[in-house]
Design a protein around this nucleic acid. Structure first.
Lengths: 161, 161
DNA sequence: CGGGAATAGTTGACTGTTCAAGTTGATTGT
DNA sequence: ACAATCAACTTGAACAGTCAACTATTCCCG
């Protein structure tokens, strides 16, 4: 049994950066969630219908969508059921793979996205984009992009792109 | 009733940055949560006992702590109860304000923090810090610090610092 | 001092998420 | 062509989080 090596603690500055990231991220998500809650949906629900609205045929495989919005398959199943009850989405069989389900945006769903999108983008600006310089925001995106790529790769290696 | 002004949509690059932030952030939090789950607690539980461990007397008012870790008071009440059942924390009356409760780390709690901290810091490094240059990570911290300050200020204006 | 408003914390019901198990259909190797 | 394995999705129970209502205490101010 090997000796446990000394932990590589964060420096004071690193610690501050990490805490700021955690705190800021939570505050931001809370603010966005509250903003959308006032219009009757959560951020993760909005992400789902918003993604669907941008894709050919407004439909996507459940698992593809789950990966895209980083939700477990089971969570997406439950959420999709709720969205379906509200009439924003329907399940369609997937031609060519009968195990599959295509989650499809309805026209009510499309309308909802159209109604919410301007509200949401304004909230993202007010709470994030407008608080940073363009360069800071770009750097943020790059950094988190690198993190995302690293983590996505280790989940399913060998299919970057 | 004023005309609704044209939404200030995100540019293509901004959109990408925002999506990367969302996706990367979720993947990161998931990874950290899984990492800690292997040791029997969640990230938000760890944050609580970790904060307590760094503070004089290892104790803090419920609401102060709730603000620090960005959890609702109600959520903290429930989580504290769970932590108390596991013996990592106890509630003590707050001298000088009989409404108050001091959440206090037990020695078992302190031991748990000591055991988990090295694991956790390693995961933060592996998934975040080590994937970025020092400058990128510092920029990330600064950016999210600005976001946090802005959002915290608007919650309780006039007490920056 | 006394009464109204604010603050600290809790409670329980409801909603959302996770987790492990189950079903059905595709794939692969022989 | 058939069994074994794997992938897509669902299910339901257990668990965590939210929300609104409630108790107890302190603060404010006339």
């Amino acid at each position: 049994m090997a000796a446990v090596s000394e932990p590589r603690w964060l420096s004071e500055t690193e610690q501050q950066a990490w805490r700021a990231y955690l705190r800021g991220g939570r505050l931001l998500m809370d603010a966005l969630d509250r903003g959308l809650a006032a219009h009757g949906l959560s951020l993760s629900e909005y992400e789902i219908i918003s993604m669907l609205s941008e894709v050919p045929n407004q439909q996507m495989r459940m698992s593809e969508l789950a990966d895209l919005v980083v939700q477990s398959r089971s969570r997406l199943t439950h959420t999709a059921t709720r969205l379906e009850k509200r009439g924003w989405v329907v399940r369609e069989p997937c031609l060519g793979d009968r195990r599959g389900v295509l989650l499809t945006l309805t026209s009510e769903g499309r309308a909802k996205v159209g109604q919410i999108a301007p509200v949401h983008v304004e909230q993202v600006r007010a709470n994030l984009v407008d608080r940073l310089t363009a360069a800071e925001f770009a750097a943020l995106g790059d950094a988190m992009g690198a993190v995302a790529t690293g983590l996505a790769d280790e989940a399913s290696p060998g299919e970057t792109q």
